[in-house]
Amino acid sequence: MSVILIMIVGSFIVAAGFLAAFLWSVRSGQYEDKYTPSVRILLDDAPTNNGPSHQSSN
């Protein structure tokens, strides 16, 4: 049955990984603005050229 101990340690480490990920996400401010990122992801970057003519992005 001692195999269960290894399993437990494994599961504990996985869970701790998720906890760490959660703490990091709070720390990096992901829970402060819950709306803007949802819009931002739909916006394309500006065409990056500085050339003479403007490019069409699509």
Binding site: F12, A15, A16, F18, L19, F22, L23, V26, R27, Y31, E32
Partner: peptide
């Protein structure tokens, strides 16, 4: 926002401990 942040930390930890 520091207050709410620490609240989220606490929930995360409590939830983790609860499940395990």
């Amino acid at each position: 926002s520091d207050v709410t942040r620490s609240l989220y930390y606490k929930i995360g930890i409590a939830g983790f401990c609860f499940g395990n």
